Simulated assay, not measured.
Amino acid sequence: MDISLICRLFETLPRQGPGNDESTARAFALIPELPENPEILDVGCGSGMQTLALAQLCPDARITAVDVHRPVLDALEERAAAAGVADRIKTICASMDDLPFENHSFDLIWAEGSIFIIGFEKGLSYWKQFLKDGGYMAVSESAWFTAAPSAEAKAFWAEIYPAIRTEAEYTAVIADCGLDLVGSFRLPEAAWWDDYYRPLETRLEEFAAEHAGDAGAMELVEMTKKEIAVYRAHAAEYGYVFFVMRK
């Protein structure tokens, strides 16, 4: 699949994956304490709804927002300026598997709906070097809510993300990576629909019109429609889980 097509489809959405401000706040509330003027790294920030939410939740934080796609960072900078927090948010265009930071640079590493790109275990193992001792990491990741998913859901995930695990399996990975689980919770279905799937459904129609006759674009449209349909039918079987950990 053409990565540039995927970027063009998703870059104008309010979010590039499931999530909402309420879930961001709930995950942040699981962190017992942060030092004064904490350094926060938002990995795979996309258009940065959670970045702005973190800036409001932690008014004395300095936030470094990283994404590989420059247009979403430009959009984040504009929104940060409009919200009056541009002086506390710095954007960097970089890959999440090749971060340009010194070890022990951050008090909190945040990754909403992005760790699947690098993989759960690899992401935790690689990113934790950038955490200060006692620092926290908060990530959301897709998970099975059942040990016996339906054939349709199982076939869909085998195609798009075969590394999906159960919550218990993720908990074991967290321990193997040398992190302590502080808490976890499942994202509500509203976190999928309100700021992600419903805007995406509208965007799909626009995107199809913009790229009429492009076979690759039409394949992406159909794949995305299938993803939405599978979630609509099987939301009880899987979803996103927020994990908050401490180094």
Results as ranks from 00 to 15, higher is better:
residue 166 T to K: 07
residue 150 S to P: 05
residue 164 I to K: 13
residue 169 E to R: 06
residue 164 I to N: 03
residue 158 A to P: 00
residue 143 A to G: 03
residue 167 E to L: 09
residue 168 A to D: 15
residue 154 K to E: 14
residue 162 P to G: 07
residue 152 E to W: 03
residue 167 E to M: 12
residue 145 F to Y: 15
residue 140 S to A: 07
residue 147 A to C: 11
residue 140 S to I: 04
residue 167 E to K: 13
residue 157 W to R: 03
residue 153 A to V: 03
residue 155 A to C: 06
residue 155 A to W: 03
residue 165 R to D: 07
residue 142 S to I: 14
residue 139 V to E: 06
residue 141 E to N: 08
residue 162 P to S: 15
residue 164 I to C: 09
residue 161 Y to C: 08
residue 155 A to Q: 12
residue 145 F to I: 01
residue 144 W to E: 01
residue 159 E to W: 12
residue 170 Y to W: 09
residue 144 W to Q: 01
residue 141 E to C: 00
residue 170 Y to K: 04
residue 166 T to H: 09
residue 144 W to C: 00
residue 148 A to W: 06
residue 140 S to M: 08
residue 152 E to S: 13
residue 145 F to S: 01
residue 168 A to T: 13
residue 139 V to G: 04
residue 145 F to C: 02
residue 144 W to P: 01
residue 142 S to M: 15
residue 149 P to G: 01
residue 145 F to Q: 05
residue 149 P to C: 01
residue 161 Y to N: 14
residue 151 A to C: 07
residue 161 Y to M: 11
residue 154 K to M: 08
residue 161 Y to H: 10
residue 156 F to Y: 11
residue 149 P to I: 02
residue 146 T to H: 13
residue 143 A to E: 12
residue 140 S to C: 10
residue 168 A to K: 15
residue 146 T to R: 09
residue 152 E to N: 08
residue 139 V to D: 01
residue 166 T to Y: 08
residue 139 V to N: 02
residue 159 E to D: 14
residue 159 E to R: 15
residue 159 E to I: 01
residue 167 E to N: 07
residue 153 A to P: 06
residue 161 Y to I: 07
residue 142 S to W: 03
residue 165 R to Y: 08
residue 141 E to S: 02
residue 154 K to H: 07
residue 138 A to M: 09
residue 160 I to A: 05
residue 151 A to V: 15
residue 142 S to A: 14
residue 137 M to D: 03
residue 164 I to E: 04
residue 168 A to Q: 13
residue 155 A to R: 05
residue 138 A to T: 10
residue 147 A to N: 14
residue 146 T to I: 08
residue 155 A to H: 05
residue 146 T to K: 09
residue 157 W to A: 00
residue 153 A to Y: 05
residue 170 Y to P: 06
residue 151 A to L: 15
residue 163 A to P: 09
residue 169 E to L: 10
residue 150 S to W: 10
residue 156 F to N: 03
residue 168 A to H: 11
residue 159 E to L: 09
residue 157 W to H: 11
residue 158 A to K: 13
residue 152 E to D: 14
residue 157 W to N: 08
residue 139 V to W: 00
